[in-house]
Nucleic acid binder design. Structure first.
Lengths: 196, 196
DNA sequence: GGTAGACTATGACAGTCGTTATAGCCAGGA
DNA sequence: TCCTGGCTATAACGACTGTCATAGTCTACC
């Protein structure tokens, strides 16, 4: 604790914002709440993120996208099935540990109507996060013998299904949907890497 | 136009609220906007829905859940594949017709953190809508020879995947994810109703 | 004609929103 | 010692939030 922990403050705000957005959604989360949730003063958020809420939200989405991608990449070194296992475990932990209150901030940003004009950067970051995850899964599937087209389609299905299942778990206050989805997605992976 | 169209006003408000929630989310949509969006005065919303925003949101979710369930039930009479086809077409139309601005109000409500205390009725309605859709699909799968456990799991996967895919389409401003998901879900249905 | 009840118009309430401005703190280097 | 620059504290801005109360209009029936 001798060294200043100021450099970490910015990071903490981003992580806190991601958590908050994953619970409440982007528009429904105020900058004041994000600041308080990460123990930072309101003034600091505008110091670190001069472009305001939009910039903070964008960095929060990118942070989540990169964090998940990093875990996924590592797990996929043991093959697609292990990668899916880790991907599911990751979301399961988030949902269960927060008692079904938190979910995915990328999804939350994705389903908010953008204002007229150019696509807001936060929405673009959400699209990028989805694409990154899909690419990681598709590459792994191809490397294990999947037909390229099938690999792309299954990768998209996995990301979509997991995102949707997390939402269903929150609504039902149960992780059962995630267990069901897990079984079928694993079955599909086996079918995909060993072309019938 | 001789008869009064007042009885329809309430219905219009509910439908308008569902559309609005599917675009912006529940908390991010104000009662004033919902009223204006359906051409009703603000005072009328509190006349028809004395319990305020919560009641209106709940009815909007139920309305969407029932509407989709009705279409799905009808399409499933031609079998699970036809049912999935119709389910996908339905969401595709919503997403494309609104230029990727609207999605599913049930999902939108499902991912909003409830306040402390009892589960809000809108969230319960979202859970019910998901369950209804799953049951329709699972029943149809069973009726066409699927193993019961597989039927339940595949039904959950279908609902989750479609919901997630709609969100991905909105983020990417493209219906390609829906096409990919469609192909793989159809493949999975064929595999499920003809046990390997 | 008159009256009851369904619906609407209007305005207010206390609170929050995103954002900005200004002034203050408090560490580091000269 | 002073001073510079990163960070914070405080207050304010107009606009918006959910909700309610009141007064008004209009329609349908007796």
């Amino acid at each position: 604790m001798v060294t200043s922990n100021k450099p970490e403050a910015r990071q903490r705000i981003v992580a806190g914002a991601a958590d908050m957005i994953s619970r409440r959604g982007l528009t429904a989360t105020s900058i004041r709440e994000m600041a308080k949730h990460s123990g930072a003063p309101l003034g600091s958020t505008y110091h670190y993120f001069p472009d305001g809420k939009q910039q903070l939200a964008t960095e929060a989405v990118r942070y989540t996208g990169d964090t998940i991608a990093h875990s996924l990449r590592k797990a996929l070194r043991a093959g697609p099935a292990a990668g899916l296992e880790a991907f599911l475990a990751l979301w399961r932990a988030i949902v269960v540990d927060t008692d079904f209150r938190a979910g995915c901030p990328v999804l939350a940003v994705a389903i908010e109507e953008p204002p007229d004009g150019p696509t807001p950067p936060a929405l673009a970051a959400a699209a990028q996060a989805f694409t990154d995850w899909e690419n990681l899964l598709a590459t792994s599937l191809r490397e294990h013998g999947a037909d390229p087209t099938n690999a792309d389609e299954v990768a998209t299905l996995i990301v979509a299904a997991v995102e949707g299942t997390v939402a269903m778990c929150r609504a039902k206050h149960s992780i059962e949907p995630l267990d069901r989805t897990a079984t079928q997605l694993q079955r599909l992976i086996q079918l995909t890497i060993r072309p019938a």
